[in-house]
């Protein structure tokens, strides 16, 4: 019982801390209950938010904008019609606007995977893991970072 409580605390603490992070997007403010589930799986020991819980508090300079969002949407539709080059160009532009946004890394890794560039897919996902927020996003990046053909 004590052990379960301990595991629960270990998992919830980083999530709670990450909720204060500047890097999180408004859409992700609440940590959905279902995202707690991966904690029960084997991936729990490497708590997904380890990188998040040590992030410094917001400096005066780090305000984040939603400006990249339309680019993400355009990249989605480019990828959907199979224009991966265009999708990647748009995502790169998005990344230049917001260089530590895991959502963009995730989208970019997915495009690389879709076009069969597994090395790039893994590398981009691995890099995105450094910036991920929330269990589901971290899990998605983690699984792409070990993607195999």
């Amino acid at each position: 019982m004590a052990r379960r409580a301990c595991r629960f605390t270990l998992f919830v603490l980083p999530l709670a801390l990450s909720a204060c992070s500047v890097y999180r997007l408004p859409e992700q403010v609440a940590v959905p209950v279902e995202e707690a589930e991966p904690a029960a799986t084997s991936s729990a020991p490497s708590a997904p938010a380890t990188s998040a819980d040590t992030s410094p508090p917001p400096g005066p300079d780090s305000t984040h904008s939603e400006a990249y969002r339309p680019l993400l949407a355009q990249a989605d539709s480019a990828a959907a019609r199979g224009d991966y080059e265009q999708a990647l160009a748009l995502l790169e532009r998005a990344l230049r606007l917001d260089t530590d946004n895991a959502e963009i890394y995730l989208a970019m890794a997915e495009v690389h995977c879709a076009r069969g560039a597994l090395n790039q897919c893994r590398a981009v996902a691995e890099r995105g893991l450094l910036y991920c927020r929330g269990a589901s996003q971290c899990e998605a990046l983690r699984s792409l970072s070990t993607a195999s053909g």
């Binding site: 490497s46 380890t50 990188s51 998040a52 040590t54 992030s55 410094p56 400096g59 300079d61 780090s62 530590d100 893991l129 450094l130 910036y131």
Partner: peptide, 12 residues
């Protein structure tokens, strides 16, 4: 420079 170096400890 507009952003200081953030601190993010990798897994492991």
């Amino acid at each position: 420079s507009e952003r200081p170096l953030a601190y993010r400890m990798p897994d492991g």
